[in-house]
Design a binder for these strands. Structure first.
Length: 521
DNA sequence: CAACGGTTGTTCTC
DNA sequence: GAGAACAACCGTTG
C-alpha cells in the first residue's frame, strides 16, 4: 500500500470493465477519482443542453457508485495542464491512471499531462477499454493504413480473434485498506456540476428519455438483451427511422460516454447468440459495434479526419456556404415535414434513428442543400447525446459520399423515404403538431394540398408552416451532376499523388466503358 | 483490365 | 413483394 493515486475519468464513466481504474486500486493507499471539466471540451456552444444533462447525470451516477465504495468523485474545473500540477503537489500523488483515448485533442492533451506527471515523479498507467480492440493494432495489421472498407476491416479483426473479455467492477473487497481523503467535505468541494453551470437556459429542458449514467446503461442493456429473439434477428437496415418509440437500443449515448463498455455489450450479445440462429455483421448488433470500431480505426489512420481539406481520403467538393439554408435545416424549417420532424426530435431529445440521420445528412449535403458535411458535423456534435468525434466525422463523410460510400446517385427523398415506414405520418404529427390535422395524403408534402385542405387543417403553407426551400426533384438531379464532377476531379488529382505514393494509376472515366450491367442474379 | 460487392435509393412494372 | 431501370460511383480482387 504505497501509492497515492489519481484515476482520471474522461470517457469511460463507469466502474465495470475499467482496467485502468483497477490498476489504480493496486498497491494504493489513497485514491482520488477525478473528472476534469476542461473548457476546451465543455462549453455551451459545443455541448448542447441535452448532452450536458446526460454528462451531469453520468457524473452524478459515478459519484454515487464511488461513494458506495467509500470513495467519491472529484470534479475539477480548468485545463488539465493547469489542474494536474496543482493536484500532484497538493495531494502528493505518485500514480496517475486513465483509459486510452484516440481522439487527436485527447492524444495531445495526454502527452502533455504525461510529461507533467514525469516532472512530478508521478507514474502513469493507461489501458485500452473504450474500443473493442487496440485501434493501433488494427492499422498495423493492415500495413499501417486504415482499412477503408468494412469487409477489409472484418478480415483484419478476424485475425485478431474476439475482443478481450470485460473486467469486473471493483468490489468493497477491492478497495479494502485504501481511503479517499476529503470524503466528508461539503458537496461544493470539487462537486458534480449543476445543470446551469455552462450557462444554458435550463428552462428549455424537456423530458429526459435517456438519462445518463452507468446504472441506467446496464439496465437498458439488460432490458434489450432479455429479448433474445429480437436481438438474434436484429438487422439495422430493417429498423424504422420514424417509429414513435425507438426501433433500436439507444445504447449509443452510453457507449459514447463510456457508461457502457463496448466489450461488455459485445460479450453480452455473444451470450445471447449462443446456440441460436442469429444475424451477422454488418447488419447485426455485433455488426454495429464493428462499425464503431471501423470509424475509430479510420479516425486514427486518416489525418484531418474531421475535415475535408487536408483529408487524403475525402473527396474535395465545392460545397456552397448558404447561411439561410443551413439555418433552415438546423432550425427545422426546411418546409419538408419529414426533415423538420427529425431535426425537431434531435433538438428536443438529443437522439434520432440512424436512418433519420441519413435522411437529414443527405438532404443537407449532396442531396439538396449542397452544404458542407462539416457544418452538419458541428450541429450533430452539439445536439446528439451520442456525439462521438470519430463516428460523427466518419458518418458525415459516408452520407455526403465523400469517402467510404460512393454511390452518390442514390439520393434519399425527403418525401418518399419516411413514407416506407410511416405511411400516416404519425411521426411528423408528433414532432410538428402544426401539421397534425393534415390528411395522410399530403402530410409529407403539405404544399401540394389544395388551399381548402390547408385551411381545414388549420395550417396554411407559407404562413403557418414554411414552403419547401428547394425543389427536391430538380435540385437533387443537379447535385448528382455536381458530385460526378467532383469525383472526376478527384480521379484526376489523385493520379499524381497516388502514383507518387504507391504507383496506383487512376484515370478520368472514359466515355464508353459503361455497358449496362445485369442486376444481381 | 474487368468483374464483384457494397448495412440502409426511387420509381415503375409485373 | 420482387425485379428491373434509372445513371453509374468506389476499393478490392484476380
Amino acid at each position: 500500500m504505497t501509492h497515492k493515486c489519481i484515476h482520471w475519468f474522461r470517457k469511460g464513466l463507469r466502474l465495470h470493465d475499467n482496467p485502468a481504474l483497477m490498476a489504480a486500486l493496486r498497491d494504493c493507499k489513497e485514491l482520488y477519482p477525478v473528472f476534469i471539466l476542461d473548457p476546451h471540451l465543455f462549453d455551451k456552444t459545443r455541448v448542447g443542453l441535452n448532452r450536458w444533462r446526460f454528462l451531469v447525470g453520468a457524473l452524478t451516477d459515478l459519484d454515487r457508485s464511488l461513494q458506495k465504495l467509500n470513495s467519491r468523485l472529484f470534479v475539477v474545473r480548468g485545463r488539465p495542464e493547469d489542474v494536474f500540477p496543482q493536484l500532484f503537489t497538493e495531494w502528493k500523488i505518485t500514480k496517475l491512471t486513465y483509459e486510452f483515448d484516440t481522439e487527436p485533442y485527447s492524444a495531445s492533451r495526454d502527452k502533455r499531462v504525461t510529461a507533467l506527471a514525469k516532472e512530478h515523479k508521478v507514474e502513469v498507467v493507461y489501458k485500452v477499454s473504450h474500443t473493442l480492440y487496440d485501434i493501433d493494432r488494427i492499422n498495423e495489421e493492415n500495413n499501417g493504413k486504415a482499412p477503408l472498407t468494412y469487409n477489409r476491416m472484418q478480415a483484419i479483426v478476424k485475425t485478431l480473434g474476439p475482443p478481450k473479455k470485460p473486467v469486473a467492477a471493483p468490489t468493497v473487497e477491492d478497495v479494502k485498506g485504501l481511503k479517499t481523503p476529503h470524503l466528508g467535505n461539503d458537496m461544493n468541494y470539487y462537486g458534480v456540476p449543476a445543470l446551469d453551470e455552462l450557462g444554458h437556459d435550463t428552462l428549455e429542458l424537456g423530458e429526459e428519455p435517456f438519462p445518463g449514467g452507468e446504472q441506467e446503461a446496464l439496465r437498458r442493456l439488460e432490458e434489450h438483451m432479455k429479448k433474445s429473439g429480437w436481438v438474434c434477428s436484429f438487422e439495422k437496415p430493417q429498423t424504422s427511422p420514424n417509429s414513435l418509440s425507438p426501433s433500436t437500443t439507444v445504447l449509443s449515448p452510453y457507449v459514447a460516454f463510456g457508461c457502457l463498455s463496448a466489450r461488455t455489450f459485445w460479450w453480452k450479445l455473444t451470450e445471447v447468440y449462443q446456440g441460436k440462429k442469429h444475424s451477422d455483421p454488418p447488419v447485426s448488433l455485433h455488426g454495429q459495434l464493428l462499425w464503431r470500431e471501423f470509424f475509430y480505426t479510420a479516425s486514427v489512420g486518416v489525418p484531418n479526419f474531421n475535415k475535408m481539406e487536408g483529408n487524403p481520403v475525402c473527396t474535395q467538393v465545392d460545397w456552397d456556404s448558404n447561411h439561410d439554408y443551413l439555418a433552415a435545416w438546423r432550425e427545422a424549417r426546411t418546409g419538408f415535414p419529414f426533415i423538420d420532424a427529425i431535426m425537431t426530435q434531435l433538438r428536443r431529445e438529443g437522439w434520432i434513428h440512424h436512418l433519420a440521420r441519413h435522411a437529414v445528412a443527405c438532404f443537407l449535403t449532396r442531396g439538396d442543400l449542397w452544404i458542407s458535411w462539416e457544418e452538419g458535423q458541428k450541429v450533430f456534435e452539439e445536439l446528439l447525446l451520442d456525439g462521438d468525434w470519430a463516428l460523427n466525422a466518419g458518418n458525415w463523410q459516408w452520407l455526403s459520399a465523400s469517402t467510404f460510400f460512393h454511390q452518390f446517385f442514390r439520393v434519399y427523398s425527403p418525401v418518399a423515404f419516411g413514407k416506407k415506414t410511416d405511411k400516416n405520418g404519425d411521426y411528423i404529427k408528433k414532432y410538428l403538431p402544426i401539421l397534425k390535422k393534415f390528411p395522410a395524403q399530403y402530410i409529407y408534402e403539405p404544399w401540394k394540398a389544395p388551399r381548402s385542405v390547408q385551411q381545414a387543417a388549420g395550417c396554411v403553407v407559407g404562413k403557418d408552416y414554411p414552403r419547401p426551400i428547394v425543389e427536391h426533384e430538380v435540385i437533387s438531379k443537379k447535385n448528382i451532376q455536381r458530385m460526378k464532377l467532383a469525383y472526376a476531379k478527384r480521379s484526376g488529382n489523385s493520379d499524381e499523388s497516388a502514383s507518387k505514393k504507391q504507383g496506383v494509376k487512376r484515370e478520368a472515366p472514359s466515355v464508353v466503358h459503361m455497358l449496362k450491367k445485369k442486376g444481381k442474379k
